[in-house]
Amino acid sequence: MFLVILALLGSLALSLLITVPLTGALVRLRANYNPRGLQLDDEGGAEPHTGPIVTGFIGMLARVKRIEGWAGLYKGIMPTFIETFLLTSFAIIALSADPRYHSRAAPPDTGILGTLAYCVFSIILSLPATIITYRSITTPYRLPYLRPLYSLRILLTPTERRRPWLLYMTPGLFLTQFCHAVYAMVLLRSLRRWLIPTSEDTNTGFDIKPIKFSIYIVIALASTVILCPLEVMAAKLAIQRNHAAAEYNSVEQEVEDDAVSAEEYVEYSGAEEDVIGLRHEKDPYLGMVDCARRVAQEEGWQALYRVWWLTMLVGLGTAFA
């Protein structure tokens, strides 16, 4: 068992060294707030938006490396490691999964209602980890790897720390994650089993027909139109913090002193700007529909399809899984 755990840790470490910078660039690019219209200054006058403008995935990777260095590329590695290790350990111990494969367990074959229940349960377990990971990636502050309580004081508002269940009430986030899970786990998975049955679905082995396979490929690619906006909105909603009152920020809203002294990456590197622009917390999205509408109005509908090609490749990969 010790050798299995050691091998698992080594495999996870190698995987995270490769995937964390890529995931970080993806989350930053989708969460970046880049309004195309004029903004109002403190006196009510119109002024053009001066935030960072990043147009591509590779450009975001280069920007992170230039402003935040190697440490910035690996922001979010600790919550990602903890979540992945716990899920993998659970899969190995409780589900007797093969330790060579540490991806998330597939939904059980229990019908539509059972799969829906699985979707809800998996979101309940993963949503707080998703919020903390996304905020760790997008925060301008340097977070120590081995001081989780200090990091949580920066990432969570005093209201969220006192009432952590408010994370589940982040406007629109649970619904966005649920819609994505239902579409991917229920609809696409059911279509795949019907159009591309495998030995698990039939008693006669693989029964793949070119026409049905082509139909599924088209459906999987077309699903990018639905799945990519949900993924973009999830990134924007996850970093939206919950306050006791919308008109106060995390420092001003509480009687207690929450002014945590933390160094910003721009102070450390000498850069003059942050990697991405963040929406002002006094003007939050009110839900999934409101998020989609305001993103389209303020940033253009193209913003809902940032890194669409990755969503398309993932959908294409389900046909060959």
Rank of each mutant, 00 (worst) to 15 (best):
V54Y: 04
V54G: 03
V54S: 08
T55G: 14
T55L: 13
T55F: 15
G56T: 13
F57K: 04
F57M: 07
I58Y: 09
I58W: 13
I58V: 14
G59D: 03
G59T: 05
G59I: 04
G59N: 00
M60V: 07
M60W: 03
M60R: 00
M60E: 10
L61H: 07
L61P: 03
A62V: 12
A62E: 14
A62Q: 11
R63T: 12
R63H: 10
R63C: 06
V64N: 01
V64H: 01
V64Q: 06
K65P: 08
K65T: 11
K65F: 11
K65Y: 14
K65N: 08
R66C: 05
R66H: 11
R66M: 10
R66W: 09
I67R: 02
I67L: 15
I67K: 04
I67H: 05
I67W: 03
I67E: 02
E68A: 03
E68D: 07
G69W: 01
G69V: 03
G69E: 03
W70N: 13
A71V: 11
A71M: 13
A71P: 07
G72R: 02
G72W: 00
L73M: 15
L73S: 00
L73P: 03
L73H: 07
L73Q: 08
Y74M: 15
K75F: 05
K75V: 05
G76P: 00
G76E: 01
I77C: 04
I77W: 05
I77M: 09
I77V: 15
I77H: 05
I77E: 02
M78G: 04
M78F: 10
M78Q: 13
P79H: 00
P79I: 02
T80H: 09
T80R: 09
T80E: 07
T80V: 12
T80F: 13
F81K: 01
F81I: 04
F81D: 01
I82L: 09
E83R: 12
E83N: 10
T84L: 12
T84G: 09
T84I: 14
F85G: 00
F85M: 08
F85Q: 02
F85K: 01
F85C: 08
L86N: 02
L86R: 03
L87K: 13
L87T: 12
L87N: 09
L87Q: 12
T88L: 04
T88W: 04
S89L: 14
S89R: 07
S89A: 14
S89D: 07
S89H: 06
S89N: 07
F90L: 14
F90N: 06
F90G: 12
F90H: 12
F90S: 14
A91L: 06
A91K: 06
A91S: 11
A91D: 05
I92K: 00
I92Q: 00
I92R: 03
I92W: 01
I92C: 03
I92M: 04
I93H: 09
I93K: 11
I93G: 06
L95H: 13
L95Q: 12
L95R: 14
L95S: 11
S96V: 08
A97H: 04
A97Q: 03
A97M: 01
D98G: 02
D98P: 02
D98S: 06
P99L: 04
P99C: 01
R100H: 15
R100V: 13
R100C: 10
R100L: 12
R100N: 11
Y101G: 12
Y101W: 13
